[in-house]
Amino acid sequence: MEQQIIRPGYLTAHQTARILGVTLTGLRSIVHRGQLARSGGTPRQPWYAAADVAALAAKRGQRSAA
């Protein structure tokens, strides 16, 4: 597997899934539904903007608290 250096402010798919509390399959569903957009990387190893992930995590946290 080829390692990529990720720029500051971006997260890997594994990191993003962990933060959102979903599996990689669940993350793909979130991306497919348009709730989160890829911000770089490769098709097999996408990156996500940390600010976008944090905003989505906060939104999901509010929904589950209500």
Rank of each mutant, 00 (worst) to 15 (best):
M1Q: 14
E2R: 09
Q3S: 12
Q4F: 15
Q4P: 08
Q4W: 15
I5L: 13
I5T: 15
I6N: 09
I6P: 05
I6G: 00
R7E: 13
R7L: 15
R7G: 08
R7I: 12
R7K: 15
P8K: 15
G9T: 02
G9C: 05
G9F: 05
Y10D: 09
Y10A: 10
Y10V: 01
T12R: 08
T12S: 15
Q15W: 04
Q15Y: 04
A17Y: 02
R18T: 14
R18Q: 13
I19P: 02
L20Y: 01
G21D: 07
G21E: 06
V22D: 03
V22C: 00
T23Y: 07
T23L: 05
L24I: 08
T25D: 10
T25N: 08
T25P: 00
T25R: 12
L27K: 01
S29N: 07
S29F: 07
S29D: 01
I30V: 14
V31C: 07
V31I: 14
V31K: 03
V31Y: 00
H32T: 11
H32A: 14
H32W: 00
G34N: 05
G34F: 11
L36I: 01
L36N: 03
L36R: 02
A37C: 09
R38D: 02
G40E: 01
G40W: 00
G40Y: 00
G41S: 11
G41K: 11
G41W: 01
P43A: 09
R44A: 10
Q45S: 11
Q45N: 11
P46N: 12
Y48R: 11
Y48E: 09
Y48C: 10
A51Q: 13
A51F: 06
D52M: 02
V53W: 05
V53I: 11
A54P: 03
A54F: 09
A55H: 06
A57I: 02
A57N: 11
A57Q: 13
A57S: 13
A58H: 12
A58C: 08
G61T: 10
G61P: 08
Q62T: 12
S64A: 12
A65K: 06
A66G: 13
A66D: 12
